[in-house]
């Protein structure tokens, strides 16, 4: 008897700022919708553990999509994208997420993302608080400079291996070998977009001096960061959460920058606490 997963994959075509994207997403569950954003240069398999976690999918409708140019979501179909350098901006990124939410007719979803997905979660809370029930920025900070590097797609090196091994020690050494190497494997597949994603992460995303304008009564913000994250270390996230009126910070012990992918069982403990807080506040 074949073992089938309850997770279903589909495509939906959306228009974002004139760009036509055919977007691939994985979905499972019933209840409050949760949009899940993968990390830069990666794809939605990072959320494989959550998508099949019955203790969460019985109450939540989990939607893990591939951002355009990642995984099975192609680059824009109506542009000669190969003639332009890809640099993701905060505005386009937010418009993509909102267009996808509307296309799927989601009712004020929770938005959760890690790393550059966490940083856009902060942007959404600031600029579009009424479109989201709450946000969970994972491994995020008000500003995250230093990772917009030429090494990610240097023609004299094996970019797949540079990206995959370059993020290796963003993960905690305690995380299981299989899950760390799966994450490594995912990172070997996205080297052509990694740097462009990091334009948003390290350059265009800068909320310094703006965090006090986030209204957590309209859109609660629950931030979570692992102790082994060197890019946005715990103190950076805690400092960010402290500047958001009503912002909450949860520190995750013994996990790194890709918690949902590198050690899902441990991440789930913290995620359930975040969802409990959101349930209380909404």
């Amino acid at each position: 008897m074949a073992k089938h997963s309850p997770v279903i994959g589909r495509y939906v075509t959306i228009n974002v700022d004139g760009y036509e994207y055919k977007v691939f997403y994985l979905r499972n569950g019933t209840g409050v919708p949760v949009m899940c954003q993968h990390t830069a240069g990666c794809h939605n398999h990072q959320w494989r553990g959550l998508l099949e976690d019955e203790s969460i999918t019985k109450d939540y409708d989990i939607i893990a999509y591939d951002l355009a140019r990642h995984g099975k979501s192609d680059p824009p179909l109506n542009r000669e994208w190969w003639k332009e350098e890809y640099t993701l901006t905060a505005s386009h990124y937010m418009n993509f997420i909102i267009a996808l939410s509307e296309a799927l007719e989601l009712d004020r979803p929770i938005f959760m993302g890690s790393s550059f997905g966490g940083n856009v979660a902060l942007q959404l809370a600031l600029h579009h608080p009424d479109k989201f029930r709450a946000v969970i920025p994972v491994e995020a900070a008000e500003h995250a400079p230093g990772f917009y590097l030429d090494w990610w797609r240097h023609p004299h090196a094996n970019a797949a291996q540079v990206c995959a091994s370059g993020v290796w020690d963003l993960m905690a050494p305690q995380s299981p070998d299989m899950d760390r190497w799966l994450t490594w494997h995912y990172y070997s597949q996205g080297s052509e977009v990694f740097k462009g994603d990091l334009y948003f992460y390290s350059i265009d995303h800068d909320l310094r001096g703006k965090l006090e304008n986030i209204d957590t009564k309209r859109c609660p913000v629950i931030m979570m960061t692992g102790t082994y994250d060197y890019l946005t270390p715990p103190e950076a996230t805690e400092n960010t959460a402290r500047q958001i009126p009503g912002g909450i910070y949860i520190e995750m012990e013994d996990i790194g920058h890709f918690p949902m992918s590198e050690n899902y069982p441990l991440f789930a403990v913290y995620l359930k606490e975040a969802l409990r807080i959101i349930d209380e506040r909404t």
């Binding site: 370059g166 290796w168 020690d169 963003l170 082994y228 060197y230 270390p233």
Partner: peptide, 13 residues
Amino acid sequence: DPMYHGIWSASFR
């Protein structure tokens, strides 16, 4: 310990 767990982490932090 955190930040001593690799060459990238230790060079950043």
